[in-house]
């Protein structure tokens, strides 16, 4: 789109215009606040698992987005980016039949029993943030 004059900032009169919650273009929003953080190791792992499993054909980027969009605005407001991603990647892997809900539940119980922190439970050799 082209913009030559955007002095007005009027919100849409209605949001019952057929758009879904994630379709945010042109809606209201607060001020832009620059954030400057790198991602945690667990978040990079979620991203890496998405890249690996989608590259190997277990699901597509459309499947990833379908789950993210179906989570609805509440998830967008209350969960972090990679929290939403882990849910979506996991859901797509369940649907592809790589592992079952039963296997996931058993594994999560096993992981939780290992300790209190991510470092303990992920069984990473050290408590550092990098893998090298």
């Amino acid at each position: 789109m082209t913009d030559t004059n955007d002095k007005t900032d009027t919100p849409p009169a209605t949001q019952t215009d057929g758009r879904r919650w994630h379709d945010m273009g042109g809606l209201e929003g607060g001020p832009i606040v620059a954030d400057d953080h790198d991602f945690a190791l667990w978040e990079k792992r979620v991203d890496a698992l998405q890249v690996i499993t989608s590259t190997k054909g277990y699901f597509t980027v459309d499947g990833l987005r379908r789950c993210l969009e179906d989570m609805g605005p509440e998830a967008f407001e209350t969960m972090s980016y990679y929290e939403r991603w882990v849910v979506s990647v996991n859901q797509n892997l369940l649907e592809s039949g790589v592992y079952s809900n039963t296997e996931l539940g058993a594994k999560m119980a096993e992981v939780a029993a290992r300790g209190l922190t991510y470092g303990d439970c992920a069984q990473d050799g050290d408590s550092g943030h990098d893998h090298d």
Partner: peptide, 14 residues
């Protein structure tokens, strides 16, 4: 992240 209590979503990643 590593030293905070494990969250449900981190557990799911592992």
């Amino acid at each position: 992240d590593q030293d905070q209590p494990l969250t449900y979503w981190q557990n799911m990643e592992i």
